[in-house]
Amino acid sequence: MSTSSQNNVRLGIFVTIGVLILVVSLYIIGKNQNFFGSGYSLRARFRNVSGLMVGNNIRYSGIQSGTVSKIAVIDDTTIEVTLLVDVKMRPYIHQGASASIGSEGLMGNKVINITPGNAQLPLLAEGEMLLTKKVASTDEMLETLSATNNDVQIIAENLKNTVVKLNNSTALWQVVNDSTLPGNIRVSMDNIRQATEQINEFSAAINEMVKEAEKGEGVAGTLLKDEAAATDLKNAIRNISRISEDAKVLIAHTDSAVKQLDRNVNNGPGVAHAVLKDTGIVKKLTTSLGNIEKGTAAFSENMEALKHNFLTRGYFKKQAKKQKKATQNK
């Protein structure tokens, strides 16, 4: 074999490999996109395809089973998607199967998920319509979440203010830290309970009284119901009022009298003033009383002397006998 033909063989191998790589990769890509695979088409109508594109995958219960072949706008609210589904999936897609738009992962490409329908129903034929199911889209979720977030923000703000106020309140913390408080509260509650019991009894009694009063019995009843008594009461009150008027006049008189007396006693020329107020008289009186005492003592001596006097001695003896007799008779 000459060098030239040897080289040609090498060249042939080289080119074949290159072309083979191209062809095989194109074939695999095509197969992935169902360009060559035998598929049949199904249709589904959506309101919103959320960015679905021609060539996006179709999953039947999660199995790769075809691609989107056409997306057409039917009218302002309907978008028709034509799905090219693998023939090998045909025996499993029954009427009532539903299509929904999902995505590969959180941010990935859109996919159409076919959920199996009722196995009793006939199979879907070429070009037939799949039911569609609306799945909560991320956009909608985010929209709702955004509204919720705003509310949460307001609530958090208010809550924060409240908590700050609570934190800054020393009174509250004193109350919270006070260990005797629970006991006190318990006692208070007990008292309140007793008080209410008493109030209960009291109100029962009042009730009773009111009932009696309504019947016209008892003092209250008389007061409330007896008209004659009311008239008497009125008269009595009027009389009391009149008496109090008189008493007022009397008191005024008494008052002036007392004042007069007072004045006389303090300053007047009468005996009372002399006795009560004049100190000179008191001295005089004391001296006089002393003199009287002395006088009586002297008199007593004189009388003793008289008894022993012979002129008067008989008289005194008679008197003593008479006295003796009187006591013996008793």
Binding site: R10, L11, F14, V15
Partner: peptide, 16 residues
């Protein structure tokens, strides 16, 4: 043709 193949060999294959 022969020259073309020879150049293909030289240009393509030997660059591999």
């Amino acid at each position: 043709i022969r020259q073309f193949l020879r150049q293909c060999y030289l240009i393509g294959y030997t660059s591999l």
